[in-house]
Design a protein around this nucleic acid. Structure first.
Length: 401
DNA sequence: CGAGATTCATGTGAAGTATACCTTTAGGCTTAA
DNA sequence: AAGCCTAAAGGTATACTTCACATGAATCTCGTA
């Protein structure tokens, strides 16, 4: 574009009214003032936690629900209100939210407790201290003042599957250890089955109260989308049927409202960039594709080198219907050779493959081929056009030519 | 022909190792009395 | 002598390796009909 052309493009851009009034409303991190269709859950949790305001010990809570059913949102919402009230009245109440899924932040016992201690202003090194010491620092930090503390552990299932329930056992015992303050634990989980893996003491202590978040149905998602789009968009931005379609797509996948909102936002971005007057239904399909792609490509880029090499090895077999660990490992060794990476052992590669499965980048299951042994059957979870893009990124990242 | 033994390839658990990082401690140097 | 800095010693978590055993259905074996 030449200077004049560019200028007129920008002028043209400005003359068009933007679709968005307030785009942040459609972001994951946005906290609406009111949460649609979650009255029961909110009042339930609020009732359970309310005694905290009087500095009494409230029950621990376990919250279940699939992704995008508003668990995190609800908990944060209640937390914000509790904070507001307690700040106003100068009550000794603290609310801590922690997501256990964040890699390198809270995915092991040590890191979880360290992170919690940091929330209380302690500085904890990333490694080097005994875990007992970390507990001690954390407990001291808690007990420093007479107060009630609500600790929310989001996506707790991730933590449990990786490190077992030892952490939770220790946390549930806090109250008997500490003199001055009371701690309420709120566990949030996507997996309804998790409590089965818990030690019975932990289970009974942690799930003194349980709250279930059922999936939204399509109508409810529509309501959510409408209430958000009223704030997010200017009038007449959405073609009729757009909200319905987004809702339908999301409802198809176990009523994931976050997905519906993402879909709407991305569809609008696509439409705006394409210079359309309105967001049309066709943009939603494009959006769905784009979201999936971005998610996978970002995940691909952000993996550690070894993971990338292994993923690349797997993708290399994308023409074959079934891929087995042995084949992948053989190829992986060659890849390592080509990009100067020290090959990991097959043992470790096996674990990495499981982790990639957990990340949803591939699908695996362990099968027995009878006489021909036992292995993991690996399937690539994405469309072939996308795997091609992923491979290109990996080649770049691994400096393969 | 069918029940039970065998087999293969690799899953999986436990224990050991390398690395990076932490605190403590001892020694050495500087400084002030 | 007291204070401060540095480096070594001793300790830990984490990622990875090593070792060893577990798995489970296709295939083989062998007694029986």
């Amino acid at each position: 574009m030449g200077g004049d052309e560019l200028k007129s493009y920008f002028e043209d851009f400005l003359s068009k009214e933007s679709f968005f009034k307030d785009k942040s409303v459609l972001n994951d991190s946005f906290l609406p003032d009111t949460i649609t269709h979650r009255k029961d859950q909110i009042s339930n949790i609020a009732k359970i936690l309310a005694p905290c305001l009087r500095n009494e010990k409230a029950s621990n809570i376990f919250i279940y629900g699939k992704t995008g059913t508003g668990k995190t949102l609800t908990v944060k919402h209640i937390g914000a209100n509790l904070k507001a009230v307690s700040a106003e009245r100068k009550l000794p109440l603290k609310f801590v939210y922690l997501n256990c899924k964040l890699k390198k932040v809270a995915d092991t016992e040590y890191r979880l407790i360290a992170q919690l201690a940091r929330e209380f202003g302690k500085s904890i090194p990333s490694t080097g201290l005994p875990t007992d010491e970390i507990y001690k620092i954390f407990f001291d930090a808690l007990d420093a003042a007479s107060q009630t503390i609500i600790i929310v552990l989001d996506e707790i299932d991730q933590l449990l599957s990786k490190t077992g329930d030892g952490v939770l056992y220790n946390l549930t015992r806090i109250n008997s250890e500490l003199k001055n303050c009371k701690v309420v634990l709120v566990g949030v989980s996507n997996d309804l089955m998790v409590t089965q893996y818990l030690d019975s003491r932990v289970r009974s202590s942690l799930s003194e109260e349980e709250v279930v978040f059922p999936p939204y149905n399509a109508i409810q998602i529509q309501d959510i989308l409408r209430s958000r789009s009223r704030i997010a968009f200017n009038e007449n931005t959405l073609q009729t049927g757009v909200v319905e379609k987004c809702a339908a797509y999301a409802a198809r996948e176990h009523g994931d409202a976050r997905r519906a909102i993402d879909l709407l936002r991305v569809a609008a971005e696509i439409a705006e960039r394409a210079g359309e007057k309105q967001v049309e239904i066709s943009h939603i399909d494009l959006a769905e594709e784009k979201i999936e792609q971005d998610r996978m490509l970002d995940a691909t880029k952000s993996q550690p080198k070894q993971f990338q090499a292994i993923l690349f090895s797997i993708l290399n077999f994308n023409n074959e219907k079934f891929i087995f660990t042995g084949e992948v490992y053989e190829f992986y060794k060659k890849v390592c050779d080509r990009c100067n990476l020290r090959p990991l052992t097959q043992r470790r590669v096996s674990d990495v493959i499981s982790e990639l499965d957990m990340l949803g980048m591939i699908t695996t299951r362990v099968i027995s081929k009878g006489r021909y042994g036992r292995t993991r059957e690996i399937a690539i979870a994405t469309a072939s056009s996308l795997t091609a893009k992923m491979k290109r990124i990996l080649e770049e990242e691994l400096e393969l030519v």
